[in-house]
Design a protein around this nucleic acid. Sequence first.
DNA 1: TGAATAAGTTTCACTATTTGAAATTTTTCT
DNA 2: AGAAAAATTTCAAATAGTGAAACTTATTCA
Lengths: 245, 245
Amino acid sequence: MNDNFSTTLVKAQQIKDYIKKHEHGCTLTEVAKNVKLNKTTTYRLLQTLVTLNDLIKVERCYYVKQQFTANYLPVGWLTSRIVQPLVNKYELSAFLGMPFNHQLVITQVFAFKKRLIDFYQLGKAQAFNTSAMGKCALAFMNQAVQSDVLMRTNLQAQTKNSLTDQNSLAYSLQNIKEQGYALDDEEVQLENRCLAVPVFDKKEQLVGTLGVLGTKATLQRRKITKLVHDLQIASNQLTGQIFNN
Amino acid sequence: MNDNFSTTLVKAQQIKDYIKKHEHGCTLTEVAKNVKLNKTTTYRLLQTLVTLNDLIKVERCYYVKQQFTANYLPVGWLTSRIVQPLVNKYELSAFLGMPFNHQLVITQVFAFKKRLIDFYQLGKAQAFNTSAMGKCALAFMNQAVQSDVLMRTNLQAQTKNSLTDQNSLAYSLQNIKEQGYALDDEEVQLENRCLAVPVFDKKEQLVGTLGVLGTKATLQRRKITKLVHDLQIASNQLTGQIFNN
DNA sequence: TGAATAAGTTTCACTATTTGAAATTTTTCT
DNA sequence: AGAAAAATTTCAAATAGTGAAACTTATTCA
């Protein structure tokens, strides 16, 4: 290496690049071993990167901090105050999703500390018919917009259990509207449940959906009534404090 | 500072933070002076950060690399092949904008090398009626969606020259539709012109708009016909190669 | 166009930070 | 509770980082 270079910065970048490739998080020992650095050197650089807010450290695991900045969604810190307590109370990850380009885009994530990988759903788009959040949005959106979306959405199954038939989708959407929420029971991913309620603006137009994701153990069927109730309160708070422009 | 820390990483971070605050770009001398580092040290760290792709260096100016990753827009590299030649030919910055949440969001930027600050438009949302790109989207979008948007858009003037009256907006949209493009002539920012054409999918539904931004000198009125022609070719290429899912 | 100035880059001796083995502490697992 | 694994601390040695001075390149101005 020549004299115009900083090997310290290179090592730090190698560490960041390794951790970026491992969404599940890495231990210090694993990073040192795979990046081929001394573990003390690795320890020191990791400490510094955490202090500089480039990495997150949670229980002996290191993660890259998500850099998605939703410039056009000025709702971050207020939403956090409303949603984060639910995350802690129910030990579930929560998401805010909004319709965008005939899909539902996850615009904000509140990952439970034991499910930090859920942060990587941020920015991801999904067809409306493939998840609870999407189906919830579909059920509660403006009728004209819904018709347009249904006509143009590529109704593509993601798992074997997904609804693919138009008639059963319509029936399902009717049920969702009546009960006030949508529920995925292992339809998207085995062992996982997702539950979502709608979020409206002051003019009662759908803005998005608020969903939670957990396992069968943490999102038990017998808890659904209470959870739905708390999510609906949170949704109303979002309407009252945020979506009234 | 204690033994568990890297002062090199801290200095690099101070440099990045300073440059991040200066969207117009900074020189080496300016960074060294303001971050209070020796200019040789600063020089060395800047070289390394550029090599590691954390910073961009263009003609003695350093810029932070934009980190916005449009995960839900798999059009990046192909769009670049279509649009970048126009940027170079006309010496204008180009943008792709898409409707999102009743606004037009800039989803992709191709900044001309002398207008790198235009990269910071990425992710920004604007009301439909306030720019050529927004008005173009409004003019060409699905009639039902347009009515909905017009009903709910907060028609708020951004500059004195912006159209605020509903009737003159409707008249203006009709003109845009007839001539096939929208033009801002110093309406958003003095000395700047913006010109936009629609982008459709294969089913002739509006997906977004393709716009270019320049000064009165680089976007001269007598060049508009040719520029519009080239933009429409690019738009058709986008439709044919990208927006056909 | 050429001189003056400003900015950027290179050199090299010095030193402060980085390094890493060994020791110690903490956490996890059985 | 104890063994094993992982993380953190210590401390002497090594070296990458440092910065003044010199040199080169780019820009500005007359």
